[in-house]
Computed example of a mutant assay.
Amino acid sequence: MTDQYLVTLTVNGEDHELLVTARRTLVDALRHDLHLTGTHVGCEHGVCGACTILVDGAPARACLMFAVQAEGRDLRTVESLGSPDSPNDLQRAFSEHHALQCGFCTPGFLMLAEGFLASRPRATKAEIREAVSANLCRCTGYQTIVEAVDDCASRRRCAPDTTEGEATPEPGQNDTPRPA
């Protein structure tokens, strides 16, 4: 008999209690136990990035974590971004720039980009290209992905700040210096 553990996972703002074995991967718990199938399983070695989700706001490979390790952490999957009827700005940018072809890697890229833009809202195209190189895509050649992420970042910088009703300044205007 395999030991099982009761864990509470906070996924997309909701708590879920699961009974899992110690070796149950987070990606399997998300897909099979919680039926959040937007997170894809690719290489199962942490190389491809198809299973990328946000763990406490940072991109992480769900295939490399056990479900028991995720207890007490804030988990976000691609389902948290939007829906087919109401996509968020990043999903719209991917569609507008044709940044997906077969779509298998797309959820991982969306979550990688969402976490990256949260930490680097003023990233350059070179920085975006470096960030997205962490995930593998066999179809797009990455250029359209970089363009979509850059376009979304630009739109977010120009969007009105809902807390103060003002647009976020462009780079160079009241810009906080980046660490070296």
Score class of each variant (00 low, 15 high):
Q101K: 00
G108S: 05
H40F: 13
T144G: 05
A113W: 11
M111G: 10
L81F: 06
V27E: 04
R155F: 14
S154Y: 07
C105F: 02
H98M: 06
R23T: 12
F104S: 04
A126R: 13
K125A: 15
T39D: 04
R138Y: 11
R156D: 01
G165K: 01
P59Y: 09
A123R: 00
R23L: 04
E147N: 12
V132E: 00
L6D: 14
C102Q: 06
L6E: 14
N88K: 09
P59H: 10
L34N: 00
P87I: 02
E44M: 05
R120W: 03
G108R: 00
Y142M: 03
C43I: 02
E14F: 11
H16G: 13
V68S: 09
V41M: 12
A58Q: 15
G49L: 00
V146D: 09
E130Y: 06
D28H: 05
R120A: 10
P177C: 11
L54P: 06
P84A: 03
A159D: 04
S95T: 10
L36T: 01
T21A: 15
Y5Q: 09
R155Q: 11
T8K: 13
D150W: 14
Q4E: 14
S133C: 07
D175A: 14
C152Q: 11
D151C: 10
E130C: 05
R61T: 06
D161W: 12
A118C: 02
L75H: 01
Q173T: 15
A62N: 08
G82W: 05
N88C: 07
F109G: 00
I128Q: 04
R23D: 09
T140H: 12
S83F: 04
A60W: 10
N174I: 07
E79Q: 05
N12C: 02
F116E: 01
V20C: 10
F94R: 09
E130S: 08
G13L: 00
R120Y: 05
G42D: 01
P171D: 01
R31W: 04
R73L: 05
P84G: 04
D56L: 01
